[in-house]
Design a protein around this nucleic acid. Structure first.
Ligand SMILES: NC(=O)c1ccc[n+]([C@@H]2O[C@H](COP(=O)([O-])OP(=O)(O)OC[C@H]3O[C@@H](n4cnc5c(N)ncnc54)[C@H](O)[C@@H]3O)[C@@H](O)[C@H]2O)c1
Ligand SMILES: NC(=O)c1ccc[n+]([C@@H]2O[C@H](COP(=O)([O-])OP(=O)(O)OC[C@H]3O[C@@H](n4cnc5c(N)ncnc54)[C@H](O)[C@@H]3O)[C@@H](O)[C@H]2O)c1
Lengths: 219, 219
DNA sequence: CACTGCTTGTGAAATCGTTCACAAGTGGAA
DNA sequence: TTCCACTTGTGAACGATTTCACAAGCAGTG
């Protein structure tokens, strides 16, 4: 009844659109919980701070399965978005660095529910290696390649100090991992076929600081 | 000799450019430490994973103070970037939510060095209120307005559970704060004159998951 | 059926950001 | 002084993304 086969005509979808898919999915799950079975583009737009036209254009990358006059089936749209975002697979994740950020991210529940399983944790602090973080044993830095291969890691989260980040991801990439989420303030150099996302508190804060400065100067 | 007066013709600088300014500044500080006194656009570009033309176009928003044939003075450029990013003021920051992410962010050193001072921490867990996080006393949620006013807070970091985020920021905005850095997976609705940046691990992971799925399907 | 109210899907236009290409400026060498 | 190697600053071309505008489709009603 709902197999949602990958009939997705996977052209290249703009990155901005993919990020919005993530948000739409979040809202749709709320709607599903509230028992709402169909939503119009305008509703999703208001929820997500964009425009109805933007929502429709975004969704048009996935084909056309809205019902004119009614909107989109929450259930169907959820399925299609999960499919295009690749959330029906389980992704095997390795965490590099079990420091403050690393452990906070590790304990963040929602992403387990979305199929991201942290199966490997690596740190080089002798006081941490051999201890457990949740249900995962922390392994030493020298076991990196070995661990990635054993666990068939798909994706790596970098939460080590910036100066060691590049050397570690080089090894990670050599071991065949094709996706990196980087929290270290380092500009990582990776081959083109490895996907990279950077999260930087400093960049966000400084961009806010710029905005505040502008506000101040204009008044 | 280097007063770097705000001769910045502050037109509206693209957001993407401002974010790159943050990165350029990071590199410039490395160069300064290494005793390098002048850099060409190409060098900054290679360091930052963009192109020389991009760097020059970005910097041209700030006026023109490069020396043709030589490049930019590291010291001067550092000063100009710090100025336009508003890093010469001290920004007073309040942290809402002293949970796992909140404390990890609190203990993150580099942003103190950049003029972001966390002067207020708010939580509503009775077991936390009254205890200290570093050198700051954790205050109860009902003291929010009072604390923001006393500390003349410029910027708020949201690290509370998503369901309570909107209600809290409404109060924060009413208290006059004009910048919010949001870590909760909630789409906050704010007046136009309040700057907002969202950081979402879920969005980043899902965009990586999409990329991985595409890679898999293409091979 | 025809009519109404509502909503999608999508070309075309507008806007925004990036890359190109090159004239013009700089310091150093001869 | 002239020449050379190098690099900036920027209009113009290009490409990508967002917004607009509207024909076409659906459900419900009379
Ligand atoms: N993106 C953000 O918003 C953000 C916020 C805070 C911190 N950070 C960054 O995250 C990183 C970690 O920050 P933190 O506050 O958790 O620091 P931390 O010192 O608490 O943790 C770093 C961990 O990495 C480990 N480590 C060091 N070298 C290693 C190696 N070669 N191999 C394996 N493990 C190694 C350390 O033992 C430590 O446990 C830093 O790069 C920091 O700048 C990012
Ligand atoms: N952006 C990211 O990458 C990322 C990663 C992990 C978590 N998060 C989000 O950050 C938030 C915090 O996550 P966490 O793992 O630290 O959770 P947590 O439960 O450890 O911390 C939440 C804290 O907020 C406090 N709190 C709850 N209601 C409050 C209120 N009304 N007023 C003041 N304080 C209140 C709680 O007492 C607790 O200390 C969540 O919204 C989570 O989804 C974001």
């Amino acid at each position: 009844m709902n197999d949602f086969t990958s009939s997705v005509a996977d052209a290249k979808i703009p990155d901005a659109t993919v990020r919005r898919f993530s948000l739409y999915l979040r809202y749709l799950e709320d709607f599903e919980r509230s028992g709402i079975s169909s939503v119009a583009s305008g509703v999703l737009a208001e929820r997500g701070g964009t425009t109805a036209a933007q929502v429709r254009k975004d969704l048009s990358f996935l084909g056309s399965f809205g019902k004119r006059g009614l909107g989109y089936s929450v259930k169907e749209l959820t399925g299609v978005l999960r499919d295009v975002l690749g959330l029906d697979s389980v992704w095997r994740v390795a965490l590099l660095g079990a420091g403050r950020i690393g452990t906070a991210l590790f304990r963040y529940e929602p992403f387990r529910a979305r199929g991201f399983h942290i199966t490997t944790v690596i740190d080089n602090d002798p006081g941490k290696v051999g201890t457990r973080l949740g249900d995962v044993m922390i392994r030493g830095e020298h076991e990196l390649e070995c661990a990635l291969r054993e666990d068939r890691t798909d994706l790596v989260i970098v939460a080590v100090p910036a100066p060691v980040a590049q050397a570690l991801v080089d090894r990670v990439v050599a071991a065949g991992v094709r996706a990196v989420l980087n929290y270290a303030p380092a500009q990582l150099r990776l081959p083109d076929d490895v996907a990279l996302r950077n999260v930087s508190m400093t960049v966000e804060l400084e961009s806010l600081s710029h905005a505040l400065t502008r506000l101040r100067r204009c008044r």
